[in-house]
Each structure stands twice: as C-alpha cells, then as structure tokens.
C-alpha cells in the first residue's frame, strides 16, 4: 500500500510527469480518432499533423525559450505575418533568388528579436509590453508593404512548397515539416546540452541567483528573444510554403496558440521548466482535434479553440497541483535526512 503511494509520489515529482500526461492525452485522442473514423489509421494523417502545423511548431519552440526565462513574446504571430509578406513581396517585385529572400527574412527576424530583447533587458522593462509594441509594429509594417494578398508565384519556391519527401511507403512529409523537426532537435540539444541552454533554465529559476553565480544573464536574455524572433521568421517561411501568399492577417492570434501548446506540453509559466518534446505534443494535440473536426465534417473549426481552452485550464490546474505536491514531498525528504547525519555529533 505504502509502496504504491510512494511510487505515485515519485511519479508526480518526476520532471517528466507532465510530459507523460501530454503524450497520453495525445495517444487517447488519436486512438479515439482511429476507433471512430477509418481514415484516421492512414499514416499520412499522422504526417499531415506535422505538415499542417510546421509553422506553429517552429514558433512554439521560439516562444518556449522566452517562457522559460519568465518572459513572453507576443510578437511571434506578427513577425510571422511580416516574414510572409516580405518574402512574397521580394519574390514578386525583385529578381532576388529564393535563398537570398529567405536569408533577408531570417535576418529581419533576428534583428527584430534582438532589438526587443535588448530593450527589455537593458531597461528592465516588461516583456509583455515591449513585445506587444513589437506585435503592433510588425502588423503595421505588414500592412504598409501591402494591404492586399501577394501571391507567391516564384517557380523555385512553389516547387519547394509542393516537394514531397517520402517516408518509406507510408506517405510523405513536406520541406516545412522537416524544417520543424530540425528546429525541434536543435532546440532540444541546445537547451539540454549547452552552456547557453542551461543558463536559460538558471535564469528561469532565479535571475538574481543566476547573476550571482556568474552567468552571463544579459547576453543570455537578449539571445533568447533573438531566438524567438528567428523562429518566428522561420515559421513565416514555413507558413509561406503552405499558404503561398503574403497577407496582413496571416498568423493572427498565433502567439496564443503557441503559448497554449507550450503550456500543454509542460512549460511552467512561472519559469524555469520546459520540455521541448512536450511542446511538440502540445501542438500535435491541437492538430489532432482539428483533424477530428475535419473528419467529422459538420462541426465548426472553433471547436478546436474551445477544447484547447478547456485543456489549458486542466493543465494549469494540474501544474499547480504538481508544484504543491512537490513542495510537500521536498519538505519530507529534507526532514528525513538530518537524524542519520546528526547522531554521531554529540553522542560520539
């Protein structure tokens, strides 16, 4: 009896508990889909999750970096839209090759992110406000470039967009999906195995402690926002590969989807805790719900939002409970130790 309880406690205290719940939820949703609709079983349905959500995955990775340091980046959707627009405009109105246009867009994302990060860190301002300003700025700039949709007709670009990368005989994925997976892998390695990544977590745990421990807090924070800017721009490229347009209202509200995905994937809004594979599953869960709705045929796509809203509530409450449980456990373990150590002190 006690053994079971201890196991349960250990599980809840484990850093992967939240991730496990997310994966389980995804599996349950997917399983239900398979049980209800025959078509769900096709591997391509699974691959489509990555194809359709490539941009969201990339953006979620970026925003997760900012969430770890108890920051936020509300400009991601707007930067994504601006990136699509600049890309479309460059391809439509100039003769620059595709790689150069993409490079320009990515550089732009880096500059926007770095600028926001610098302002936030240097003047110790609220990231919420600064990136909100960044969001308005980028949306505005997008409209300034063009109020109308710009079609992307560049042959190279459309070829890349429709290029299918086969996965055995099972199906295929798009270039965007592969980009998303690469970004995920790099982010996971950077966060888990580099000095920079660990400094990000330390800052999330306690910024003042991180500074006192001699970590480069300023630089790290600026780079975090730069990464978010870069990911938004790259997400824009992935988005353009699907939409083949530049449009002022692209990615509207995407920052919220990204935050939701990240949180469902186990990121704590109190900072210092996140798990990149979790963020992926956060996106995939939203994707599955959308797939459901398209299979079902009559429900409105807004049901996705409703379900995601409900899930968010559930997950936030779960996180709070985990944190509380952990606090209780830690109290016990600290008290459990001293007697063994203390005994020899005076008695001996």
């Amino acid at each position: 009896m006690r053994g079971v309880k201890k196991l349960a406690n250990d599980m809840i205290a484990s850093p992967y508990f939240s991730f496990g719940v997310t994966v389980l939820l995804f599996a349950v949703l997917y399983g239900t889909g398979v049980a209800m609709y025959k078509g769900f079983l096709r591997p391509q349905v699974f691959f489509n999750l990555f194809i359709d959500n490539a941009a969201l995955i990339i953006v979620t990775v970026g925003i997760t970096f900012t969430l770890i340091i108890v920051g936020i980046d509300l400009s991601v959707g707007a930067v994504l839209a601006l990136s699509c627009m600049v890309l479309a405009w460059l391809l439509a109105n100039t003769a620059v090759p595709v790689w150069a246009a993409v490079a320009v867009v990515l550089l732009m994302g880096i500059v926007i992110g770095a600028a926001q990060g610098y302002i936030i860190t240097k003047f110790d301002l609220q990231p919420f406000i600064i990136t909100l300003a960044g969001m308005f700025f980028c949306r505005g700039m997008t409209a300034v470039i063009s109020r109308d949709t710009i079609q992307i007709t560049n042959e190279t670009f459309t070829a890349i967009a429709s290029y299918r990368i086969p996965i055995g005989d099972l199906g295929f994925v798009s270039v965007g999906a592969v980009l998303a997976l690469i970004v995920l892998a790099i982010a996971a390695v950077v966060l888990g195995f580099t000095k920079f990544g660990r400094a990000v977590f330390a800052i999330g745990g306690s910024e003042s402690s991180a500074a006192l421990m001699g970590l480069p807090v300023f630089r790290t924070k600026v780079i975090v926002y730069t990464i978010s800017g870069f990911c938004s721009a790259l997400g824009g490229v992935a988005y353009a590969l699907i939409m083949l347009t530049g449009y002022n209202l692209h990615g509207l509200g995407m920052e919220m989807d990204a935050i939701a995905s990240s949180v469902i994937g186990g990121t704590l809004l109190t900072g210092g805790v996140a798990f990149i594979p979790g963020a992926l599953f956060g996106v995939l869960i939203q994707g599955v719900i959308l797939t459901f709705i398209s299979f079902q045929g009559t429900l409105s796509a807004w049901w996705t939002k409703i379900v995601v809203g409900a899930l968010l509530c559930v997950f936030i409450v779960m996180q709070a409970l985990i944190t509380e449980q952990k606090a209780r456990l830690s109290k016990k373990s600290s008290m459990g130790e001293p007697p063994e150590k203390a005994k020899p002190g005076l008695a001996g």
Partner: peptide
Amino acid sequence: EVNLCKNL
C-alpha cells in the same frame, strides 16, 4: 542570501 536555482 542563498544563490542557487531551485529548478536545477
């Protein structure tokens, strides 16, 4: 003051 990070 304790200068460590609790999440690490």
